[in-house]
């Protein structure tokens, strides 16, 4: 019986993973952390921001100031397709960067977060 155990284990694993699916989708380019680090409040100009990050995805007028918004979305989906029951989970997270420019075109504030760094493939839909 001990001889057959590894084969039995392999058979069970093979049965369980035969209906697995992994998918991924992204929207937008990666917002480089190094580029964000080079932006200095009170010093970096609008032209330098554009040279570092390219054109923003959105320009928002905010109390007489311009805010450049850059975003990127990452989606990871995992499915476990068993014969009688299927489990699927799709997780979508976005990275957002806001660069606030004052009326002279100088960076006043930078707000950013990389939420996609912790994004994992999951198929178990229960829990957090």
């Amino acid at each position: 019986m001990r001889f057959f155990q590894p084969f039995l284990f392999l058979a069970v694993v093979a049965i369980l993973i035969q209906g697995c699916a992994f998918s991924r989708g992204t929207l937008g380019d990666d917002i480089k952390t190094e580029a964000i680090g080079e932006i200095k409040k009170g010093a970096t100009t609008k032209a330098e921001v554009l040279a570092l990050l390219g054109a923003p995805d959105r320009v928002l007028p905010l109390n007489g100031r311009d805010v450049y918004q850059y975003y990127r979305y990452d989606a990871k989906a995992g499915s476990l397709l068993l014969i009688l029951i299927n489990f699927s989970r799709l997780s979508v997270k976005g990275d957002d960067l806001f660069v606030m420019l004052n009326q002279n075109g100088i960076v006043e504030e930078v707000l950013s977060s990389k939420r996609t760094e912790n994004l994992e493939f999951r198929f178990w839909p229960f829990g957090d």
Binding site: L84, I85, N86, L90, K93, R115
Partner: peptide
């Protein structure tokens, strides 16, 4: 019993951001 209780079941969850 499990087969009878879960015939053709799909459980899907989609999360956007945290």
């Amino acid at each position: 019993l499990v087969g009878a209780l879960t015939p053709g079941c799909n459980v899907v969850r989609i999360t956007l951001n945290t």
